[in-house]
C-alpha cells in the first residue's frame, strides 16, 4: 500500500488520462490531459518538449492539481473520481533517456503500446525528448460513486508523506 488511499491508487493505476492543472505566470490556471503513473509514493507524468510550457509553469510555481475523472479512460469498478493536489518537481536533467529509465516500466505496464511508438522514435524525435513531472501528494479528494454533487472524502496527506 502506498501513500494514497487504496481506491485512489486503483484509479491512478487504471487511468489512461488525468487532467493536470498548473499555474501560469499570470496566476491563471491551465489544464492538460496527460497519462498519470504512480509508484506508491509519487505520481509521475511526462511531457514532451514540444508541449513544454507546463514544465516552465511548474518550475515557476510547483502547486498542481490532478483530476482522475474520465468515465471513458478510467476502467475501475465501481466508477469513482478523485482529485489530488500536490507539489510538483520537474526532472529535465536527461530529456532524452531519463524518463525511459525512471518511468517507462510504469508506462509500459499501463500502456504496452508505448514500445511500438518508441521503436519509431526516429519519426518523431522531439516527441520522445521528455521531462518528468513528479507530484508529491498533499491532499486528495475521493468521490466514491463518481458523483461530485455529493461531498467528497478528503484525505490530508502532507504529514503522512513527509
Amino acid at each position: 500500500m502506498g501513500v494514497l488511499p487504496e481506491p485512489i491508487e486503483e484509479l491512478l493505476e487504471s487511468a489512461l488520462v488525468g487532467e493536470l492543472t498548473v499555474v501560469d505566470p499570470t496566476g491563471g490556471l491551465v489544464t492538460h490531459p496527460l497519462i498519470p503513473l504512480y509508484d506508491g509514493e509519487l505520481i509521475y507524468l511526462t511531457s514532451s518538449v514540444l508541449f513544454s510550457k507546463k514544465l516552465e509553469h511548474i518550475k515557476a510555481n510547483p502547486k498542481v492539481s490532478l483530476s482522475i475523472s474520465d468515465p471513458v479512460a478510467v476502467k475501475v469498478e465501481p466508477f469513482r473520481r478523485a482529485t489530488i493536489q500536490g507539489d510538483a518537481v520537474v526532472d529535465d536533467s536527461d530529456l532524452h533517456s531519463g524518463w525511459e529509465e525512471r518511468v517507462l516500466p510504469l508506462w509500459r505496464k499501463k500502456e504496452p503500446a508505448i514500445d511500438f511508438f518508441l521503436a519509431k522514435r526516429v519519426a518523431l524525435p522531439l516527441f520522445f525528448e521528455r521531462g518528468i513531472i513528479e507530484i508529491r501528494p498533499r491532499r486528495a479528494f475521493l468521490w466514491e460513486d463518481g458523483r461530485t454533487d455529493r461531498a467528497p472524502q478528503v484525505f490530508e496527506l502532507a504529514e503522512a508523506v513527509h
Binding site: 487532467e19 492543472t21 498548473v22 499555474v23 496566476g27 490556471l29 489544464t31 502547486k63 498542481v64 492539481s65 490532478l66 483530476s67 475523472s69 474520465d70 468515465p71 473520481r81 482529485t83 493536489q85 498533499r138 491532499r139 479528494f141 468521490w143 463518481g146 461530485t148
Partner: peptide, 17 residues
C-alpha cells in the same frame, strides 16, 4: 464530462469533475 479548475484558499489549483 467537464472539469472545473480554480484556485483554492491555500493557493493550490483544485480541479473537480
Amino acid at each position: 464530462h467537464a472539469i472545473i479548475a480554480f484556485m483554492d484558499d491555500d493557493g493550490y489549483p483544485l480541479s473537480v469533475a
